[in-house]
Simulated scan of single mutants.
Amino acid sequence: MPDLLPWAWALLALAAVTIGISKTALPGGSILAIALFAAVLPARTSTAAMLLLLMVGDVFALIAYRRHAHWPTLVRLAPAVVAGLLAGFAFLALAGDGIVRRAIGVILLLMIAVTLWRRWRQSRTDAATPAHGSILLASTYGTLGGFTTMVANAGGPVMSMYFLATRTQVQVFLGTSAWFFAIINLVKVPFLAGLGLFQPSVLLMDAALVPLVVIGALAGLWLARRMNQRLFDRIVIVLTIIGAVYLLF
């Protein structure tokens, strides 16, 4: 088990709960957990540790939304996502912890910018105007999504942007996202294992945090119909910006 101070365990506990909530109530909300993990652990270790907890959350997302996936969308995205995953793997293999740590900070800030721009665009775009899931669109978002999810588990906002651009209905959005990340996270395991990132201490730490992910996922299912999502989004964005700036400086 990693020798961490109580405040560090508290941050990891908060991150684990956030992972669960993000999987069942707030797609893309795990960027806060990314910042917390990377602030406490070495950058590459944080990516591996988070991956296993995200996979626990994937189970609950699939239970809740598995029937609503649009498989042609997943097939369209697959080639570009694979290319992005390979590029991210090469980056992790060649870069040291310091570079990866700053890269995670930059990625988080970019994801925040993407999220805010997405909402601004949504508010100004005529919802009646259809957008088509072209090959170029799928290639762009798929490659960026694959890279960011491999390096920092931060593909959520990128793929949310894609689903919004293609006017995906809410239930289809949630179901397709659930299957997308469940599959991608499984694919990432051998890559990170090949880099030797799944140390026994990481596995023990994740075992201690798994119950909190489960609690967060169950809380997310309960909160999905009740919480003020706008307020929650703002809190996540502010805390994530603070975490990203901390990682950079």
Rank of each mutant, 00 (worst) to 15 (best):
S134V: 12
P130I: 12
R230G: 11
S201C: 00
I107M: 02
A165D: 15
N228W: 07
S160Q: 09
L221P: 03
F163H: 15
V158G: 01
K23T: 14
I242T: 09
F163W: 09
L12F: 03
M1S: 13
A219C: 09
A35I: 05
I99C: 00
I63W: 06
S201K: 10
A90Y: 05
L212T: 11
L144D: 02
A61D: 10
G96H: 05
P211H: 05
L4C: 08
A35Q: 06
T176H: 01
A224M: 00
S123P: 05
L186W: 08
Y246D: 12
W71T: 15
L137F: 05
T240H: 01
I34Q: 02
R167N: 15
S139D: 08
V56Q: 03
I63R: 11
T73D: 08
V213Y: 06
V56C: 06
I241P: 06
V82N: 01
W7K: 02
A64R: 14
H132E: 15
A113Y: 03
L116R: 10
D97N: 13
W7Q: 11
V17N: 07
L11K: 01
T115P: 01
A64Y: 01
I237P: 13
P79T: 11
L109E: 13
S160V: 14
L32A: 12
D126E: 07
L54P: 13
D206I: 00
A224P: 10
L26M: 15
G194V: 06
A16S: 13
A35Y: 03
V158H: 02
I135D: 12
F163S: 10
G20Y: 04
P42L: 03
L62W: 01
G29R: 06
W179H: 14
L32W: 05
G88F: 03
V213W: 03
L109P: 11
R44C: 01
A127K: 04
L54V: 07
Q229W: 00
L164R: 08
L108N: 14
H68W: 09
I21W: 11
W9R: 05
L247R: 12
G196T: 04
A13M: 10
G146A: 02
P79D: 08
L110W: 03
Q122M: 04
L26S: 14
L51G: 09
A39S: 15
I183P: 09
P211Q: 11
G98P: 08
G28E: 07
F191S: 12
P130G: 12
R124K: 13
L144G: 04
A244P: 10
G20W: 10
M159Y: 07
Y65W: 15
A8Y: 00
S123Q: 13
L92Q: 06
S30N: 07
T24N: 06
A244S: 10
A8D: 14
T140S: 09
F147W: 05
L53T: 03
L108C: 08
M111S: 11
W71V: 15
A219R: 00
I19M: 00
I19L: 01
D126P: 11
T24F: 04
A90R: 09
V158F: 03
A38L: 01
L52D: 08
L164T: 15
V238L: 05
P211S: 07
I215A: 13
D206Q: 12
A138W: 02
F180K: 07
Q229V: 13
F180S: 02
G155F: 02
G145H: 07
G243W: 06
G243F: 00
P200F: 01
I21E: 12
G155P: 06
G29N: 07
I99P: 08
L195D: 13
V82C: 05
G216Y: 03
R119S: 12
